[in-house]
Amino acid sequence: MSVINDTKAIVIGMWTTWKHIFRRPVTLQYPEEKRIPYPRYRARIVLTRDPDGGERCVACYLCSAACPVDCISMQSAATEEGRRYALWFRINFSRCIFCGLCAEACPTMAIQMTPDFEICNRDIMNLVYEKEDLLIDGCGKSPEYNFYHHAGIGVTQRRGAGLEEKPPVDVRSLMP
């Protein structure tokens, strides 16, 4: 009968909550007790460098396009050797929701998230990070990856000298 079933359901529910009253709370008293987040925790964003020390970010605008709150802005430019880089790169952490879509969108593994979540500040402008605040001296996760070695257009190496590339074609050759 539904009345019995319903009553039973309510009683079971009440019994469950009753048991929980006497359980040890899981709360951590945050400022005094700190929890170490996992390495893949999604907090403060950094820009990493490739193993050769060059900036990984090529300012492709994919992170700013992926960002649902439009907190990333940048201007791309070219260095003299033709390497694309971010002339300026700005993340407004007062707007950021730490969703991780930017890091997911990044094709060069440049933008990565760190477990450092304690970046609160009373002045909003202190939460607007420029490129020099974001750029770190390290590779972060995936330490071997170097985008330009796979890109297939040279830039950091001779054309045709990258991984998975043949040497350049001699267009004047008559060989089949």
């Binding site: 090529v58 492709c60 605008y61 994919l62 694309r84 094709p107 060069t108 985008f147 796979h150 890109a151 297939g152 257009i153 830039v155």
Partner: peptide, 13 residues
């Protein structure tokens, strides 16, 4: 044979 360089290609998008 197409390179893997969309991020640094102006045509991307």
């Amino acid at each position: 044979n197409h390179p893997h360089d969309c991020p640094v290609c102006d045509e991307g998008g």
